[in-house]
Simulated scan of single mutants.
Amino acid sequence: MKRLILAAVAACAMVAVAAPVSVEAWGNTGHRLIGMAAARGLPDDVPAFLRTPAAAAEIGELAREPDRWKGAGQPHDRERDTAHFVDMDDNGHIMSAAGPSIDALPNLKSEYDAALIAAGLDVNDAGYLPYAMLDGWQQLVRDFAYWRVLTAQAGREVDPAKRAWYLQDLQRREALILRDAGVLAHYVGDGSQPHHTTIHYNGWDRNTPNPDAFTTSRQTHGNFEGAFTGRVARMETIEAGMTAFDPNADIKPRIAAYLRTTLGQVRPFYELEKSGAFVVDSADAAAPGGRFVNARLSAGASELRDLITLAWRGSASVSIGWPAVKVAEVEAGTADPWLAMYGED
């Protein structure tokens, strides 16, 4: 709750003294570019409909969607707003040394909440970004699994009515894949923004030692990811900075490692901020602050590209529908998925 109240206060203060500045992670520009760069970098084995310029643009737009959900009221906002961040201390523990380590999170979010409560920590202050990322990835695996079955069966179905239904459902599934890839893009993008992984999320935490006299300004977060990022983010720089595909498919520890890497950029951010690297009026993509922004956006785009690819590849080995049918058997032509797909009730 504290994080969200402070963000709102900072936003109001900025409106009073300057043009409006977004306080969502990366603002519109950063989230769009992460989604687009990831889609443009997908390998050839990913379905072709996802590798078009139109699909890249759509994922980029939909990457903004979780920020646009805000303001619906309760319980909608409380359940979703805390998905955008996870506040770790400098050693990778959630909130404090008493909290669980990012490297040893429980499998279920309910267990995570219970561990925080047992440690005397506020669940809403902590955030649950790792679970939002994992949930988004698992949803995409399901989407791709259904896409595989629909594509395979539509190509061989001899019943005209059934074939028509498969083709219509395939269109629905492709729209869902774009939407769910965009939602995943948002949370992966959040995870590349250092402020979304730390207790120092809007100025250095005033309740912790600050021997380097880093800023404690409550405008730090919004100024950086909104106006400054909007001026220095460059698609060509982001794409040039993307890393090679990482095939590690152990998703839960992979997400933890990704967020820990971002946490490692918190101190470099504050050192750059102290040097004046993020002054909006002098924003320069080639200067240290601009390079920092584009490197973080590259990290988000790289991870998103990899997670989408791994979701696609992982979808070949699962079962879908009820009664359950194996995707591999449908693709091989040894199982008829009609009842699993259309239903028999």
Rank of each mutant, 00 (worst) to 15 (best):
Leu121Cys: 09
Asp284Gly: 06
Pro47Met: 01
Tyr166Cys: 06
Lys326Ala: 15
Gly264Leu: 09
Gly290Ala: 05
Trp338Pro: 00
Phe292Thr: 01
Arg173His: 06
Val17Ile: 10
Gly276Val: 07
Arg296Pro: 03
Asp306Ser: 05
Ala104Ser: 13
Leu259Tyr: 00
Thr334Leu: 06
Asn91Leu: 05
Ala164Arg: 13
Arg173Gly: 04
Ile177Tyr: 03
Thr215Ile: 08
Arg156Trp: 06
Ala277Asp: 02
Phe228Cys: 02
His31Ser: 07
Ala145Lys: 12
His93Trp: 07
Ala8Val: 06
Gln219His: 12
Pro75Phe: 12
Asn248Met: 05
Ala115Thr: 12
Trp137Gln: 14
Ser217Pro: 02
Pro53Ala: 11
Ala8Tyr: 11
Val327Ile: 09
Lys2Met: 15
Tyr187Phe: 15
Ser110Asn: 11
Asp77Ser: 10
Phe224His: 07
Pro66Gln: 12
Ala301His: 02
His76Trp: 14
Thr237Ser: 07
Ala37Val: 13
Arg291Ala: 05
Ala48His: 05
Ser315Trp: 00
Val149Gly: 02
Glu344Thr: 10
Ala340Val: 03
Trp312Asp: 14
Val17Ser: 13
Gln153Asp: 13
Gly314Ser: 10
His31Tyr: 00
Thr151Pro: 04
Tyr187Ala: 04
Gly92Tyr: 10
Thr208Phe: 02
Ala98Lys: 13
Thr52Arg: 07
Tyr112Leu: 15
His196Thr: 12
Ile94Leu: 13
Ala119Asn: 10
Ile117Arg: 13
Lys326Met: 06
Lys70Phe: 14
Glu344His: 08
Glu344Arg: 05
Tyr128Ser: 10
Thr52Gln: 10
Ile238Ser: 01
Gly60Ala: 10
Lys162Cys: 14
Ala104Cys: 02
Met341His: 08
Val318Phe: 00
Pro211Arg: 04
Gln74Gly: 02
Ile5Phe: 11
Gly155His: 05
Leu259Val: 09
Ala164Lys: 13
Ser302His: 04
Ala10Cys: 10
Ala25Cys: 08
Pro160Thr: 14
Val15Arg: 11
Val279Cys: 08
Gly222Trp: 01
Gly120Val: 01
Asp250Gln: 11
Arg260Ser: 13
Phe49Asp: 08
Tyr112Ile: 15
Ala56Arg: 06
Ala126Leu: 09
Ala328Trp: 05
Thr52Gly: 07
Asp87Thr: 11
Gly203Met: 06
Thr198Leu: 08
Ala114Ser: 14
Ala104Val: 01
Val141Arg: 06
Val293Pro: 02
Ala115Val: 08
Ala340Leu: 05
Glu58Leu: 13
